[in-house]
Simulated assay, not measured.
Amino acid sequence: MEFIYQEDILADIAKQIIEHTSSKTLAFYAPMGAGKTTLIKTLIKELGSRDNVSSPTFGLVNEYALDSGKVLGYHFDFYRLDDEEEAMDIGLDDYLDSGKWVFMEWPEKIPNLLPSEVQNITIQILNETTRKLTLSE
């Protein structure tokens, strides 16, 4: 499934992703500046969290909750990892097995740790304001 979009319709794109995803584990493949964090922020909002979403570049993982306090999911940014062992050291398996939403930026840094049931999302920059998003297994 493919979408061509600009930021003003991102909420609609997020709703479509939620409706059509095959997994609660989402792996985002895109170059720097393509809007991965912005899309994840919109997805988390559409799923019902009012938490302030930011890229967990330095902490590796952020946790987001619903108003009830129940954990909605986890947001990873693997950009600064030197090797897959670092992801294992923070307990990636436990997060993946939690049954919660998992949003992963830079999953190409941990190819051997990705679960088989992951939903791959690729974002291409078409121009300064337009992106192409592809959902694939």
Rank of each mutant, 00 (worst) to 15 (best):
M1Q: 02
M1Y: 01
Y5E: 01
Y5G: 04
Y5H: 05
I9E: 04
I9G: 03
L10R: 10
D12A: 10
I13K: 06
I13G: 04
I17S: 03
E19G: 12
H20T: 04
T21H: 02
T21V: 02
S22D: 15
K24Y: 04
L26N: 09
A27M: 02
F28I: 00
F28V: 00
F28N: 00
Y29W: 07
A30R: 03
A30S: 07
P31E: 11
M32Q: 03
M32N: 07
G33E: 02
A34G: 06
T37N: 09
T38L: 14
T38H: 11
T38V: 10
L39N: 02
I40T: 14
T42V: 15
T42M: 14
I44T: 07
I44S: 08
K45E: 10
K45F: 12
E46P: 10
G48H: 06
G48P: 06
S49F: 12
S49E: 10
R50N: 15
R50G: 10
V53A: 09
S54Y: 13
S55V: 01
S55Q: 01
P56H: 15
T57A: 05
G59F: 14
L60E: 08
L60R: 12
A65M: 15
L66D: 05
L66Q: 05
K70P: 09
K70I: 14
V71M: 13
L72H: 11
G73M: 15
G73W: 15
G73Q: 11
Y74R: 13
H75W: 10
D77F: 06
R80G: 06
D82F: 08
D82N: 13
D83G: 13
E85I: 15
E86I: 08
E86T: 15
A87T: 10
A87I: 10
D89L: 12
D89W: 08
I90G: 09
L92W: 05
L92D: 07
L92K: 04
D94Q: 13
Y95A: 07
L96H: 09
L96R: 11
L96C: 12
L96T: 11
D97M: 14
V102G: 10
F103A: 04
W106H: 03
P107M: 01
E108T: 13
L113N: 15
P115Y: 07
S116V: 14
Q119V: 02
I121G: 00
T122C: 02
I123C: 00
Q124F: 03
N127D: 13
T129H: 10
T130P: 08
K132H: 13
L133V: 02
S136M: 02
E137Q: 09
E137F: 06
